[in-house]
Design a protein around this nucleic acid. Structure first.
Lengths: 231, 231
DNA sequence: ACATTGTTGTCAACGGTGTTGCGCTGGCTC
DNA sequence: GAGCCAGCGCAACACCGTTGACAACAATGT
């Protein structure tokens, strides 16, 4: 919108007002309902008690709204990170917070997995990750590429988990059961490894996997620092 | 424009012209056109010279078709992996091949990022990764969780890259330019790290990042093996 | 040889999506 | 008081995946 028209003292009309903030909060309410309530423009209008198309007076399109909503949730993540942690602790807190928020608002987490919001809170996240990898001992191009590794990976991880939450419950059930069904019935000669580990494969939890992925990022940074130091 | 020329109750062909394979191959042809040509049922019908809904005689719904198409592309990936590599080489080859195929058929790579096909070629991939982590020195639950780490991560990586390719070119351009624009103009005091590394951030390439992510997985496996050996 | 049944493609249509153009209205400025 | 105009409702558009009824054929049973 070309005209933000702030000046809260003057304040625009009272009553049933439709502001960007109100729209974002209604979006979050819908997003929090996960796969039980699709995040559509019409549903959003219903939630706001307004005509669905009124939203287009405040956001160019649904994508821009989604970016704003995503930045809001990024703020939630940042606020959940305590002070005084070392770089590993900050990265772990960022990962945990991101996952938590992405699972809370699945539609946001999944659609933003390969996006860049270029909004205030994203800058703060970038600054946080950069600070962490620099505290770890990287700098210059090394720090830049490792930041991107961490940032993109985290986004992809939580996006993947969030997207999974949006599937129809039956699709999800079929996916989960596959480790106990299809993978137990594979040809033992053609797939000896699967056969041998079928029980363990069915027992792996999402949280274990997430933890392993996050620790892999930290380990990679540590190893790079060490390689540079001994070089 | 979406109207094919002829076909008014004429041109009745010989036998069953439409086979699952033909539909899958037509799907791949459309998918290979990336963001220039949306992968819709109607477009698929056009590509096949048949009524769009004829597809439903061979696949329950679009999702099942997509799973079959995905399994076909997984086959392409597997066939591209040479024999005789050690476990690191096999994982690298799998990663490179997956990325290549996902970028070739973006719509497939992006929609499958958080799915499980439970089809033949997926079993082969699982077997391959499991073999790699076991050759590295892991077993049992350790092997299972590290397989999931590798499998899920690779899927998320290539899915992220593929999804990016599906955006409108202008959205993509805005994203790419952000490192040279918005991130150069941030407040230097509030964001010292971004300010300091803005040049390097703009110069990081996608391939560098992907390489770092893949090597991080390998490093994580190595470190785990070492930790278990010295314990 | 005929009737029956099952398969496969066509067609029209349904309910859903994001989005736009038009008209009205109520609070603002002059 | 007169006008402006942003904010909103309404109807409609284009497109999506999918379904049900029907027609044309192939295969089969008798």
């Amino acid at each position: 919108m070309p005209k933000p028209s702030d000046t809260p003292a003057r304040s625009k009309r009272a009553g049933s007002q439709l502001t960007p903030d109100a729209i974002i909060e209604a979006s979050l309410r819908i997003a929090a309902r996960g796969s039980e309530d699709a995040f559509t423009v019409r549903r959003l209008g219903e939630e706001l008690g307004a005509d669905p198309t009124a939203i287009y007076r405040h956001f160019r399109d649904k994508d821009e709204l989604l970016l704003s909503v995503a930045d809001r949730t990024l703020g939630e993540v940042l606020d959940s990170i305590p002070e005084g942690l070392d770089w590993k602790g900050r990265l772990r807190a960022l990962a945990d917070g991101s996952l938590e928020v992405a699972l809370k608002y699945p539609v946001v987490g999944s659609t933003m997995a390969s996006r860049t919001t270029r909004r205030p809170n994203e800058f703060r996240v970038v600054e946080l990750i950069l600070g962490a990898v620099m505290e770890a001992g990287l700098d210059g191009a090394e720090a830049a590429v490792h930041y991107r590794m961490v940032g993109d990976s985290l986004l992809a991880y939580v996006g993947q988990r969030a997207a999974y939450l949006l599937f129809d419950p039956d699709v999800r059930a079929a996916d989960e059961a596959s480790w106990s069904r299809e993978y137990r019935l594979v040809d033992a000669e053609g797939f000896p490894n699967i056969t041998r580990l079928s029980t363990q494969l069915a027992e792996v939890t999402d949280d274990e996997i997430f933890l392993a992925r996050v620790e892999a990022l930290i380990t990679a940074i540590e190893k790079r620092v060490e390689a540079l130091r001994t070089a």
